[in-house]
Lab assay of single mutants.
Amino acid sequence: RPRTRITDDQLRVLRQYFDINNSPSEEQIKEMADKSGLPQKVIKHWFRNTLFKERQ
């Protein structure tokens, strides 16, 4: 599967949610997917990777 490119607008949506809650529920992930147009799987990976980077 090719790598998903996240646009600036999509990144802005993800960052807004991450700043509020870095561990979103399934419902919140679905909401983000609707707003950003990204697949839920991509959003889950983005949150996991971003949380890991923040903790380092």
Rank of each mutant, 00 (worst) to 15 (best):
R1S: 03
R1E: 00
R1P: 07
T4N: 15
T4K: 07
T4M: 15
R5L: 15
R5V: 15
I6S: 02
I6Y: 08
I6H: 05
I6G: 02
T7S: 14
T7N: 06
D8H: 13
D9C: 15
D9P: 09
D9E: 13
D9G: 10
D9I: 06
Q10G: 01
Q10F: 01
Q10S: 03
Q10V: 02
L11K: 14
L11I: 08
L11F: 05
R12D: 06
R12P: 02
R12E: 12
V13A: 05
V13G: 03
V13Y: 11
V13H: 06
V13C: 07
L14T: 00
L14G: 00
R15P: 00
R15Q: 11
R15N: 12
R15H: 14
Q16W: 09
Y17V: 07
Y17Q: 06
Y17R: 03
Y17C: 06
Y17P: 00
D19V: 13
D19A: 15
D19R: 11
D19I: 10
D19M: 13
I20E: 05
N21K: 11
N21G: 07
N21S: 12
N21M: 09
N21F: 03
N22D: 06
N22M: 13
S23K: 10
P24K: 01
P24F: 01
S25K: 11
S25E: 08
S25A: 08
S25P: 06
E26H: 12
E26T: 10
E26Y: 12
E27H: 07
E27M: 11
Q28E: 09
Q28G: 06
K30R: 06
K30N: 01
K30T: 10
K30L: 05
K30I: 08
E31W: 03
M32E: 00
M32Y: 04
M32I: 06
M32D: 02
M32H: 01
M32T: 01
A33E: 13
A33M: 09
A33T: 08
K35S: 05
K35H: 02
K35Q: 13
S36N: 13
S36T: 15
S36F: 09
S36H: 10
G37Y: 03
G37P: 00
G37N: 08
L38I: 08
L38N: 00
L38M: 04
L38Y: 00
P39S: 13
P39H: 09
P39N: 05
P39Q: 07
P39A: 10
Q40R: 13
K41G: 15
K41M: 12
V42N: 07
V42Y: 06
V42F: 04
V42T: 11
I43E: 01
I43N: 00
I43T: 02
I43Y: 00
I43C: 03
K44C: 05
H45Q: 14
H45L: 11
W46S: 00
W46N: 02
W46V: 06
F47P: 00
F47I: 04
F47H: 01
F47W: 06
F47V: 07
R48G: 08
N49L: 08
N49R: 13
T50L: 07
L51N: 12
L51T: 10
L51M: 14
L51F: 05
L51Y: 12
F52Y: 14
K53Q: 14
E54C: 07
E54Y: 04
E54K: 03
E54N: 13
E54P: 03
E54V: 07
R55C: 04
R55A: 08
Q56C: 15
